[in-house]
């Protein structure tokens, strides 16, 4: 225990009116906190997002492919879908679960909400970090997946398109995750996650190129409503230009539109929850 009667902290001067710090400085400080936490949790991201896609790859490509149940070249079709899936779902989970905790149980978000920064920008910071985590996940999955299947398509010239699509996918995942975490009561989070994430995975053209669904028009329509489809198709189209795919410009257009929409819904729901 410190002595009670020692004089006040020397470093502290008599308080004048505190100056308001610049917006970008505060924004970067909050971003830096999330990046520090992300760096601490890198292995968590890997486990969280890596296991399912890698097992999927293993079963579909190694097990089923090895037995001739699925074609050999399925691996090439599947790997871009797995990368897209990792980007979107990692971003979704990495923003939704911590936010449920930070707003609900620990309220540790309060310190950042009380920073001299618009609450909307605190939410945007979360989306930026979610997007970066999605990118990290995608970047980790690519070499791991390539190692597992033994080969991987590589189109250096198309890398910007892959990056752009993955970033948009991460942003959208973050937006969906934040919206869900902010509007759902805590006790319904788990069930809703299953209800939302499972269809995103299975109607998102991860395993198959969208144009090939023309034999099942109703399912093709359903998949066209899932933003995941455009992430998968964007990445696949860039990595495998010879495989029939949704044109890149359509993917980018749809993804940009969806990204704008989820930005509005997520930031608004965040601010409503933050200041009641």
């Amino acid at each position: 225990m410190t002595d009670l009667d020692t004089p006040p902290v020397a470093a502290m001067s008599t308080t004048a009116t505190p100056a308001r710090p610049s917006t970008h400085r505060v924004f970067l400080a909050i971003l830096r906190r999330d990046l520090l936490v992300t760096a601490k949790e890198l292995w968590v991201i890997l486990v969280q997002v890596g296991l399912t896609p890698l097992f999927m790859l293993f079963v579909f490509v190694k097990v089923l492919g090895g037995q001739g149940i699925v074609a050999r070249n399925f691996a090439d079709l599947f790997l871009p879908g797995i990368i897209a899936l990792a980007a979107l779902t990692t971003a979704l989970q990495s923003v939704a679960l911590p936010l449920v905790k930070e707003f609900g149980f620990t309220r540790e978000i309060e310190d950042r909400l009380l920073a001299p920064l618009s609450t909307n920008l605190v939410a945007v910071g979360k989306l930026v970090v979610a997007m970066l985590r999605g990118l990290i996940a995608a970047a980790l999955i690519y070499p791991l997946g390539a190692l597992m299947v033994g080969s991987a398509p590589w189109q250096p010239g198309r890398l910007p398109m892959v990056l752009l699509t993955v970033l948009l996918g991460g942003w959208i995942g973050g937006g969906i995750g934040m919206t869900l975490a902010m509007i759902l009561p805590i006790q319904r989070i788990n069930i809703t996650f299953s209800l939302v994430v499972t269809p995103i995975i299975w109607t998102g053209c991860i395993h198959y190129p969208w144009p090939r669904l023309s034999s099942m028009p109703w399912f093709q329509t359903v998949t066209a409503l899932n933003p995941m489809t455009y992430v998968s198709e964007g990445v696949r189209g860039a990595m495998l230009p010879d495989v029939a795919h949704i044109p890149a410009w359509v993917c980018l257009l749809v993804l940009t539109g969806v990204a704008a929409l989820v930005t509005v819904t997520s930031v608004r729901s965040f601010s409503r929850r933050a200041v009641q």
Partner: peptide, 12 residues
């Protein structure tokens, strides 16, 4: 310690 440092950083 980081709680203090980051809080201070949030306030510029």
């Amino acid at each position: 310690r980081q709680n203090l440092l980051y809080h201070a950083a949030y306030h510029g």
